[in-house]
Computed example of a mutant assay.
Amino acid sequence: MARERLIYVIAGEPSGDAIGEKLITAIRNQYGSGVEFVGLGGPAMESVGFQSRFPISELSVMGLVEVLPHLWRILGRIRETADDIVRQNPDAVVTIDSPSFTVRVVKQLVGRYQGPKIHVVAPTVWAWRPGRVHKFKKYFDHLLTILPFEPTYFQRVGLASKFIGHPVLEYGVQEADDRAFRKDHGIDSDQKLICILPGSRRGEVARHLSIFGEALARYRAAWGDVFAVIPTVPAIRAFVEEGVSGWPEPPIIVSTPLEKYQSMKASNLALAASGTVALETALAEVPTVIAYKVSPLTAFIVRRLIKVDYVNIINILAGKEIVPECLQEKCSPDVLADILGELSAASGQSQIQQVRPYLSQLASSEGRPSEVAAQYIIEVSTPETSVDLP
């Protein structure tokens, strides 16, 4: 009796975990019950029956310098994962984002695994290190991108690439019940709520939380009392709770996707570490300021490699700063508080209006991102089936 189709999925961080959960569900809906998933994932993927080989929180390290203390452990996990793929010999390997981990895993499969290797979420070669297109061509067979302008960069070197749409569009933030959140937490409709998003990795939270807390205190001093909510992920919730234990007014802390999107939709303002959350707050139509800080050495290196003027996708698509960006030296309590104050006035509504046209560019004409990706993966993992793209 033939075995079920086996797909090895690797999602090494929370954003990839969310994509993986939608992808697994979409593949099951399209292919039926005759498919099994193994590999690495987090709580979202586990919620649909996936079992991760080890906690992906071990991989949640960000920054060129910050990763060094964890290097040997991560290298060990890379070897373990590659060996497990060879042993299981799946019908396809699907890696999601986390290129510093996933590329190294796939590199160790050379000469040992012959099935299709599909990567979801292209590396930002349009922003820095454009030479990575050749690395991805060398180690992957297919690439599914989440930004409309990305396929061309990889098709030029012969890597089959397809735009599937941005996964943030199907996370559910637009449909979240803001009134239910305010009711559950005793926040009246006329009371202000600020959504604080310091990052999904422990290192990001360590760098941003105290700065964001001081910015909140300064905003309160100038604009009056305001509620605050911090959406986080289960793996670092205790760390966040410890970090805010000394705040004069403890914020609300939530750690489920439902509560996260309800809290965003219920908020009047957002202060967010750069990343996917900035698109989520845009979809929730919440005026947002983006902030990010890394070690001085990491910042020094990145600034000499970066090729774009902005870090926020909306700003990149627009070619101008619609959503304020406060990076490194600008990521300070005073600057952040001042911008939050400006967003409390007319500039906040102006931001919402200006963002809308660029959000529409993130959708695929073929359907939901997970559905488009699922169909592609099923096709390329079926024997004697190939997908030809320009």
Rank of each mutant, 00 (worst) to 15 (best):
V103G: 04
I85N: 04
G172R: 09
T276H: 09
G115P: 13
Y292S: 05
K192S: 08
Q174S: 03
L279H: 00
G41R: 11
K135C: 06
S255Y: 05
D334E: 15
L147P: 04
S364H: 12
F239C: 06
S255N: 06
V277H: 07
D141G: 08
V133D: 01
A82D: 10
N89S: 07
G34Y: 10
E214S: 15
Q353I: 13
L343R: 01
I194N: 08
T95N: 05
Y139E: 04
A206I: 05
E214I: 12
E325R: 12
Y139T: 04
G224T: 14
P296Q: 12
I74K: 01
V65C: 05
P257E: 00
V110D: 14
E285Q: 14
L340F: 00
V120L: 14
S386K: 13
S47L: 02
Y113T: 08
I196R: 03
I313H: 11
I290R: 00
G203S: 02
A299T: 08
D334Q: 15
I19E: 07
L159T: 12
L169G: 03
G341W: 08
V244A: 09
G111H: 05
E249K: 13
Y219K: 03
A337Q: 03
A238S: 01
V302N: 02
V205N: 04
V105Y: 04
R129A: 02
D97Q: 03
E46P: 03
R218E: 10
L23T: 11
A228W: 05
V302H: 02
V65M: 07
D178C: 07
W126E: 14
I290T: 00
E66P: 13
H119L: 02
I96R: 09
L64P: 01
V86D: 10
S15L: 01
V67H: 10
